[in-house]
Simulated scan of single mutants.
Amino acid sequence: MFKPWVKSVAPIVFGLITMTLSPITAATEEGFKLAVGGFYSTSDSGMEVTNPSNGEEFTLDFETDLQLVENEFLPFLEMSYWFNENHGLYFDWKRLHRNANNTKITVPYEFEDVDTGETYQVKAGADLTTIFNVDIARIGYGYDFYSDDNFDLIATIGLHVMWMKLSFEGEFGACLDDECRVVEVDPDNVVLTEVTAPLPDIGLLASYKFAPNWRVSGHIQYFYIKVDEVKGQLVDFSGGVSYEMTDSFSVDLSYKYYDIDVEVQRDYSSLDIYYGFKGPMLTLAYHF
C-alpha cells in the first residue's frame, strides 16, 4: 500500500509559500555560485511492517521504535551556474547517515526481503542494530521568466536522486513454511536491499529584494511518479532571508522541509519506506 510520508495524516496542500532559499534564488548576472552550510534536521522515517500475532500492517517508526537519533546536523553543498540573466543550472547534495542499537524491542514485527521474498521476524525484547543511510542529490534547470530591479520569478525542472541503505543486524527469526527459527545475519548483510529512487520534480521560486543587500524568497517543488517497479512522491520547500555582505559573499538563514515516500515492487515482495526532515539551515555563499 502506498502511504504518505508524514506519520499522521500528511496533507499535500500547499498554501502561500514564502521565504525559501536555493542556489538559484536570483538570476542577477552570469557566473557561478558555490554555497556550503549546515542544516540542523528533525527526521521522521519509518516503514510498513506486519504484526506477526494478528497479521495487521502498521508503521514502524525508526526514531521511536528503533531509537535512531531524531535531531542531527546535516552538511550540504549547493552549486549553480547562470549562462545569462534568464537561464541557469543548479546542483545540491545532502547526507544523513544514522545507526542505533536497541536492546529491548517493544513491538514485534516481521518484514520481507524485496529481492528474495524471505520473511524475517523480530520479536519483542530482541537485540537489534539498525543502519539507515540516505544521500540526496538534486540537479536541474532554472528559467527566470519574469524579472525587474527587485523581483524574480523562476521556474525549475530537475531530478532528485536518493541513495538509501536500510539494514538490520541482530536477533532474527527466518520464517519458512510457516515456521520461524533464529538465524545468524551477516553484519554486512543488507536485509532490505539498497534502493536508488530517481524522482523528477518541477518547482517555482519567487524572490524579492526588499532593502539594499537584503532579499527574501519563496520556492516549492513537488512531483509524483510511477516508473516500472518504483513509485514515489516528493514534497520539498524551505524558507529564509539572505544578506549580501560583499559583491562576492552572502549569508543565508532559512527553514527547510523535505518529504519523500518510495514504494518498491519486486517479483517477490514490496517495500514501502518514508523519509522526511525539517529544520533551520545556515549557508555561506561565494559568487564568482
Rank of each mutant, 00 (worst) to 15 (best):
M1E: 15
W5S: 15
W5C: 15
P11Q: 15
V13G: 15
F14D: 09
M19V: 07
M19K: 03
L21N: 12
E30L: 07
E30R: 14
G31Q: 03
A35I: 07
V36W: 09
Y40F: 14
G46I: 01
M47T: 00
M47N: 01
E48P: 02
T50S: 14
T50M: 15
E57D: 14
T59V: 14
L60M: 03
L60C: 03
F62K: 00
T64C: 02
T64I: 05
T64P: 00
Q67N: 08
L68S: 02
L68C: 01
P75I: 00
F76E: 06
L77F: 15
W82T: 01
E85H: 03
H87F: 15
H87Y: 15
G88Q: 07
K94C: 05
L96W: 13
N99V: 00
A100S: 04
N101S: 10
P108I: 13
D115W: 00
T116F: 05
Q121W: 06
A126C: 09
I131R: 05
N133S: 02
G140S: 04
D149Y: 12
L153Q: 12
I154T: 12
A155R: 07
G158Q: 05
M164V: 03
E169P: 06
G170Q: 04
E171L: 09
L176D: 11
R181W: 14
R181S: 15
V182S: 14
E184L: 09
E184V: 14
N189K: 10
L192G: 01
T193I: 06
T196C: 00
A197Y: 01
A197M: 01
L199W: 02
L199Y: 02
D201Y: 15
L204D: 10
L204F: 12
F210L: 00
S217I: 02
G218T: 04
Q221M: 08
F223L: 09
I225K: 13
K226I: 07
V230N: 05
G232R: 08
M245E: 07
M245G: 04
S250D: 14
Y255N: 00
Q265T: 07
R266S: 05
R266G: 06
S269Q: 00
S270F: 01
I273W: 06
K278F: 03
G279A: 10
L284G: 09
L284T: 08
A285C: 11
Y286N: 09
Y286E: 10
